[in-house]
Amino acid sequence: MRTFFWSLVATGALVATASAATATDRTIPLEAAATDVAFAPDGRSLYVVTAGRNLLQFDVAAGRVERTYALDNDERRPGVQVAAGRFTTVTSAGALRLRELKNGNAVATFSVPVARARIGTVAAASDGSLLAIAGGDPAAASANIVHVVDRTGQPRFRFPAGIGAMAAMAFSPDGGTLVAASFDADIRIWDVRTGTLVHCLEEMPLAMFDLDFSRDGRLLATAGADQTIYLWDTKTWRIVRRLEGQPETVRRLRFSPDGTRLVSGGMSALDFEAPVKVILWDVASGRSLRTWETAHRVNALAFSSDGRQVAVADGSKQAKVWAVPN
């Protein structure tokens, strides 16, 4: 980390203000659109990474930015993997870089063989022991591959992954399963202990844009262009429930830590800068409990560890924290 800034000074515009909706709702103005958000395990801080190459640590209760870490100029697309205490960036040379959340220090930088050195979607196991990295297959122009590597970049497996770029990937909470949703509309499920493809869910006609496991690993939620959230039983890999009502493409979704709720965020396929809905769902009944609105398409969602707050980053230059109704 070349530069370390304290609080608001260096970025100038990082003054946080509380919105009027409830005592704990927050709006965080940013110097660039946020690409990812994640709460610290203690729930006190929210990490926000931006397209402007900054990592902010935001004190939710105090409503102010505690620290800002500036990334290097060659880094882009930062994503927070908070459970492992790290976050990832992709360098312009096509390498993946891991940094510590607590001090911003780079702990590893490594490359994987993907076409034109363009790393696509990245996912991390919850303990940080494994990373999945998607990209084009250098040997076949219209094919894609997923590399599974350990935290130092040592390869474990290399999976053929269909013909579309990868929309989203996630490890199961026990770290034994990797699920990947491709723009070719198939969902592939690999056993990362044996390196084998165990299922390919082909029944979805349209691509799923995001997916998330419930914390107990029993359910997988997927959603995408058809505006429906699908809940899959991860033992049978059958759909057990559909949540309908998002008025746009579903771009992001996350389970609450106790698995009883789910939050989804939209995207206008016509205009990424059009306002969209963020919906809180009751998983058991499939009913929507609360609807918010964001200015632009939703880039990231996160629940706090107690499930009482949800953070959202959209394409506009702000992140928000909302109180979740009981």
């Binding site: 579309g164 723009f183 082909e202 979805m204 691509a207």
Partner: peptide, 13 residues
């Protein structure tokens, strides 16, 4: 023919 991206709105069937 050079490849271009599949895009997110491919639909089977």
């Amino acid at each position: 023919t050079p490849p271009e991206v599949l895009g997110p709105f491919f639909k089977k069937g």
